[in-house]
Amino acid sequence: MNGMTEDKQKPHYHGHRQRLRQRFLRDGGTSMADYELVELLLTLALPRRDVKPIAKDLIATFGSFADIVVARPEQLSQVKGMGETAVVPFKLVQEAALRLLRQEGRISPQINSFDSLVDYCRAAMSREPIEQFRILFLDTKNKLIADEVQQKGTIDHTAVYPREVVKRSLELNAAAVILAHNHPSGDPTPSQADIDMTRTIRDAASALDIAVHDHIIVGRQGSFSFRAAGYL
């Protein structure tokens, strides 16, 4: 009788959570749907709540696991049940993914790592709802010194100042930079303003022996390389 009483006292989702964990450990989550991964993350933050409704609301609001992970904390917290504790695991996953991509040698501007460079840029900002301009600063061996968001703008414009790009490069003793920004519209095709701005930065940096290896534009529909297109 005591065993039956204990079973009745367990939350109805207890067995479901255990099965989720076992499935994840069996194949690393490859067989799991997006909402199941979301649910599993939520169980870590909210161990005493039924998180399936929250997981389904997150998928309904943002569309996919990836979109949830890259959503801003204030956007996530607007979903019912998503307090600060529940937001943290998703932002932790995003930062972990970016750090894995930033590991030594993965984003060198050499041709054989171009795909890794694009993957990193897309992971970092392709789903951002506003334009973001970031710079990857490299040393003389093309190893990453720093990755910094230089400016944030509106849904279709970011003001970039070549003087600030060069100034920061000198402060970090960078020998080269890779420029990157996103197009929230999804289309990575550069505007004339993008082309003009890139050439202005290139000329200003070149005068101080700082190379501009590339300018990558990312969006949901793909990516664009100024170097590959012949603009640099």
Rank of each mutant, 00 (worst) to 15 (best):
A60M: 12
Q78C: 06
H181C: 02
F133H: 01
Q192D: 15
I145H: 07
Q192R: 08
M32E: 02
I59Q: 02
E148W: 11
R199S: 15
I111F: 13
A207L: 10
N142T: 08
L20R: 03
K52R: 11
R134M: 14
S225T: 06
L172S: 08
Q151K: 06
G28C: 12
R102G: 11
T200K: 15
D203M: 09
L179A: 02
P89S: 02
A146P: 04
F65E: 01
A71T: 07
G222R: 02
A175C: 10
I107V: 14
T85P: 01
D187R: 06
K167H: 11
F65P: 01
V177W: 03
T140A: 14
F90T: 00
G105W: 04
D27W: 01
H213F: 15
L25I: 12
K143A: 08
S206Q: 13
P188S: 06
P129V: 06
R19W: 05
I216V: 12
K10V: 02
A207Y: 10
D67G: 04
L232M: 12
L172F: 11
L172A: 08
S126W: 12
E171S: 13
Q78F: 03
H14E: 09
L172R: 05
E131L: 04
A55R: 00
K143I: 05
A193I: 08
R26W: 09
L76T: 03
A207W: 09
D147L: 04
P109S: 02
V166M: 14
R106F: 15
L100T: 08
K143N: 09
R127L: 14
I201K: 03
M4E: 11
R102N: 11
A96I: 09
H14D: 09
F90V: 00
T189E: 15
R102C: 12
Y120G: 11
K10C: 01
N112E: 14
D119S: 07
Y231V: 10
N182E: 04
Q151P: 00
S225M: 08
